[in-house]
């Protein structure tokens, strides 16, 4: 019942970015992956979901090997990726974005995700690209949840959003995890992520440098200095 990334090496062309990264998330848990800009956080998510090639190491979900499987195969296996920049379909309505989220699972029932993010309810017929950043982020997460994934990987959820919005979304993610989805939160701004997560990893220069319980990391003076601005 876990998503495991093991000794992962990946990069762009001949430029290596990740040098043997191991991360795992259990269903029902939230894990946080924090690290500075350029550390390779987005690359790790892309490698896990087939968007960049893995040169060594493995991606496994419940023992099933998904290393270098096509993007859509990994999505169909139940791993949802809210990518950097959200990648909504900006010219389509929120409703159509959600329909696409449920496309593979043939899930047309938006009730559950709209309960989670009631603001989207009034926005259903609005063009997704015209919403505020916070609403777009909610839409991106809701779209991912429409596929009823077992694992949800979110890249820089808090980027550019007001703290109250981030808190609102994080609280919802707690609910999502409680219902059995495993969540991997990738963040540069670590504060909120460490509050909701159980486990945490620090990624620096393509290597995991610190790992442990989220609460321990939040108390670690090195982590506090580097990622919590304390």
């Amino acid at each position: 019942m876990t998503l495991v990334v093991e000794d992962l090496h990946a990069g762009y062309g001949r430029v290596p970015v990740l040098h043997g990264v191991s991360v795992s998330v259990a269903r029902g848990d939230i894990a946080a992956l924090i690290g500075p800009n350029g550390a390779g956080k987005s690359t790790l998510l892309r490698a896990a979901t087939g968007m960049v090639r893995v040169s060594r190491g493995a991606v496994r979900m419940d023992g099933r090997d998904l290393t270098n499987a096509p993007i859509e195969t990994i999505a169909r296996a139940g791993i949802a990726h809210v990518p950097e920049g959200r990648r909504l379909f900006p010219g389509l309505s929120v409703r159509d974005n959600l329909r696409l989220g449920g496309w593979r699972a043939r899930n047309e029932d938006m009730g559950t995700v709209l309960e989670l993010f009631p603001r989207l309810h009034e926005r259903l017929d609005q063009v997704a690209g015209s919403m505020s950043g916070g609403e777009q982020q909610m839409c991106a997460i809701a779209r991912a949840l429409m596929g009823r994934p077992d694992f949800l990987l979110i890249d820089e959820l808090s980027l550019g959003l007001a703290p109250v919005i981030v808190e609102e979304i994080m609280a919802r993610l707690g609910q999502v995890a409680a219902e059995g989805t495993g969540i991997l939160l990738v963040e540069q701004d670590a504060g909120h992520a460490l509050e909701v997560a159980q486990r945490a990893y620090v990624l620096e220069n393509g290597r995991i440098t610190v790992t442990g319980k989220a609460a321990e990391l939040a108390a670690d003076p090195r982590v506090r200095a580097a990622y919590l601005g304390v």
Partner: peptide
């Protein structure tokens, strides 16, 4: 609109 995003939806 966005082939990569569509593939992430399982298309």
């Amino acid at each position: 609109m966005d082939r990569g995003a569509a593939r992430l939806m399982g298309v």
